[in-house]
Computed example of a mutant assay.
Amino acid sequence: MATGETGFDDVTYDLVSLQYHSLKAGHDYGQYVRDAENAGRKDIAAFFRKVMAEDSNRAKQCREYIRDHAETSASGPAVS
């Protein structure tokens, strides 16, 4: 199992990265919802809410995979 410069295996790093980006995007989408609502575009606001929910679910799935991966592999920091 490869460990990159972070000292964590690639799968763990990838999952944490995806989780971070999903959560960050979800935060940003809140502003997009407000912008659409302020413009009177309830349809677009609903679309942004849907995308936000998808990213929230993606972040939750990453959390589960991170937990499961940590339990089934040596996914922690490299010791060498």
Rank of each mutant, 00 (worst) to 15 (best):
T3P: 01
T3F: 14
G7T: 08
G7K: 05
F8P: 00
F8S: 00
D9A: 04
D10P: 01
V11M: 08
T12M: 15
D14K: 13
V16H: 09
Q19F: 07
Q19T: 06
Y20N: 11
H21K: 14
S22R: 00
S22V: 00
L23F: 03
K24D: 12
G26M: 01
H27K: 11
Y29S: 00
V33S: 02
R34K: 15
D35W: 08
A36D: 00
E37L: 12
N38Y: 01
N38K: 13
G40N: 06
R41G: 00
K42T: 11
K42Q: 13
K42E: 11
K42H: 09
D43H: 02
D43N: 04
D43Y: 02
F47T: 11
F47N: 02
F48R: 02
V51Y: 07
A53N: 13
A53Y: 03
E54N: 08
N57D: 08
A59D: 02
A59S: 10
Q61T: 10
R63F: 07
E64F: 04
E64G: 06
Y65N: 06
Y65V: 04
H69N: 08
H69M: 06
A70V: 03
E71C: 03
E71A: 14
T72F: 03
S73V: 05
S73C: 10
A74H: 11
A74F: 11
G76F: 10
P77E: 13
P77G: 14
V79R: 15
V79S: 15
